[in-house]
Design a protein around this nucleic acid. Structure first.
Lengths: 350, 350
DNA sequence: CTGAAAGCGCTAACAT
DNA sequence: ATGTTAGCGCTTTCAG
């Protein structure tokens, strides 16, 4: 490596990094005094402090996080386990969480576990080795992975409400979201509203379905199982869902897709077979992913402020760490409807 | 917390976690022998090993990663710094990197630095505290942040080629990508090809422009600065770019957008003003983001296997850590063209 | 093949 | 306000 490298400050002969003792010796004080200085201890003689600070500067000293962890116990590290990092919703939550964690002096290890078994292994590695002081978990109810949540470290569930009272969480009010989406379609005069859901075993899916049912109920409409088809959140699955509904002869003038990707797939399929959106079918999505407004037509959807979830998850984690006895909080955030071009008034026609 | 909790294995009175010494005492050996067992040391008496393993099992012992780091030096942790976590390309690289790192026994701290100053701070926190044994960096040339790359820890640049010989990197062959995209449009008969670029200060942008120029040159066409407009990778900026080109009266029958999001924005704008894609304008994107095939029209683009970049970045990092003297590698991956519906033959008309 | 001693770099708990 | 003494839980080094 060439170029102008900053002059390395090292007054030692050795190439090793200076320790607290080197600093102490250089400053002519005890290593404990140095420790006090770097830990912002109040009652220190200004002169002493100055000497120590100069020594730190002169030697280019930086405390070792490892050694600190070793003697004080805390690693100042949290971990986040999610099924993947590419899902926009997950990425946004993690981004929010990481930024806030660092602001509070914590680093975030992010790791992915696609299934229950890898989740179990991961938790063990993370927790048993005492690398982390807290765990953020996304989607533990997708399968059996919630069984492997650790008991000896604070855990906050992120992006979904928990099934038990005992687990802290930060989530979106999915029922309300489903309700808003459905209500919007009802208000446009649609009465046959197909539902493209995520995997039925996920709680947020059930919540969104419950919101859908609630809106139907309020409108005096019966719930019809025929109108539901379940995908896996992917655009491809949205495509197959709508295809299946049509093949089985289900009639509908509107679709509520439980995320924007599936909405996208559904729109794609319908356009391919010559239907027009929203003239022939109105479609509402969920999430308001960044590109939703750029589709043709742009997608009416349910918006949530996702990074906020991550930020507050970390806030809960820190609370829980600092005061383990504190009451367990389960936060719920209310989403809003964003109306775009994929929905319009119902017109009797096909 | 209720429910059936696994019986905790603890034969000690204390509630503290067992240490290597507790295991040693329980097994009737020295703590050193226990250390050897957990470190897969070969020459150990099978009986002794059995006794130790039983003790570990009985006590529910797990080694402390902190203590190990403390005495051996290594933290088995890498860190990745990227501008954000939500960009699909970044997320994919990180996902690949994290998975491979963990496979190799390393955890990955991922952190974001939106600008040079926060990058500097972050690197200092990460490196000077000796939390990490290696650094993966995305996009260090977006601004001055490359100046703050650490010198005392292995670094691998991810997703862009470096400006100097001295930096290991794993990147896509952007020039080749730009070449393929342009060549495709040329082969369809287009000769006026607008270019919506990313920020000009990013190297991959220049490389893609160079590929564009190369293809034009091969076709005997002159390069026209008027045809270029620069955005910031966002769909919104793609929209403004195309709007500006049209407003300034630039004629074009095709567009090469340097990423799919900007292509999306461009398509959106053109459709809004009544143009048809690809009849009036052909458009090629870059990246093949997951939804590119679901747009209307689906987007012709340049595809790259992104997780591979992350995986190999970690591979280089481990190589470099294990043998610091090894020759510095700069890997380049060749992308491919994916033809969809946003491009078609040139027809003389407007 | 196994054990004893030393120390990684820091903080905590006393002393002064 | 500062110094001294002990570890934190492990690996390394050197003896046996």
């Amino acid at each position: 490596m060439t170029g102008n490298i900053n002059a390395q400050k090292q007054n030692n002969m050795t190439s090793k990094r200076p320790t607290i003792r080197d600093v102490a010796q250089f400053a002519g004080v005890s290593h404990q005094t140095v420790s006090r200085v770097i830990n912002q201890y109040e009652r220190i003689n200004p002169d002493t402090r100055k000497k120590v600070e100069d020594a730190i500067e002169a030697l280019g000293y930086h405390p070792s996080a490892i050694a600190r962890s070793m003697s004080s116990g805390g690693t100042r590290t949290f971990a986040c386990i999610s099924p993947n990092l590419t899902d926009f919703t997950f990425a946004s939550m993690i981004e929010g969480a990481e930024a806030y964690a660092r602001e509070q002096g914590y680093f975030l290890i992010s790791a992915t576990a696609p299934d229950a078994l890898s989740f179990k292994t991961l938790v063990e590695q993370l927790v048993q080795s005492r690398r982390t002081e807290g765990l953020l978990v996304i989607n533990p109810y997708a399968d059996k992975r919630y069984l492997y949540l650790p008991k000896d470290v604070p855990v906050v569930l992120m992006g979904a409400r928990p099934r038990t009272k005992g687990l802290a969480s930060v989530a979106l009010d999915d029922k309300q979201g489903g309700y808003l989406a459905t209500k919007h379609l009802l208000s446009l005069g649609h009465t046959q509203i197909a539902l493209i859901s995520g995997p039925l075993e996920e709680d947020c899916v059930q919540d969104r379905i419950n919101g859908y049912k609630k809106a139907l109920h309020e409108a005096g409409l019966a719930f019809d199982k025929e109108l539901i088809s379940s995908g896996d959140w992917s655009a491809t699955s949205g495509q197959s869902c709508i295809e299946n509904l049509i093949k089985q002869g289900t009639k509908f003038s509107a679709v509520f897709a439980q995320n924007d990707r599936m909405a996208t797939g559904a729109i794609h399929f319908l356009q391919k077979i010559g239907w027009h959106i929203p003239e022939d079918v109105s479609i509402v999505g969920f999430d308001d992913m960044p590109l939703s407004s750029y589709f043709n037509p742009s997608i009416t959807t349910i918006r949530q402020d996702i990074p906020i979830l991550g930020i507050n998850a970390v806030r809960l984690l820190i609370n829980k760490k600092e005061d383990p006895c504190e009451e367990i909080q389960q936060l719920l955030y209310t989403p809003e409807l964003v109306i775009r071009d994929s929905t319009s008034e119902y017109i009797q026609r096909r």
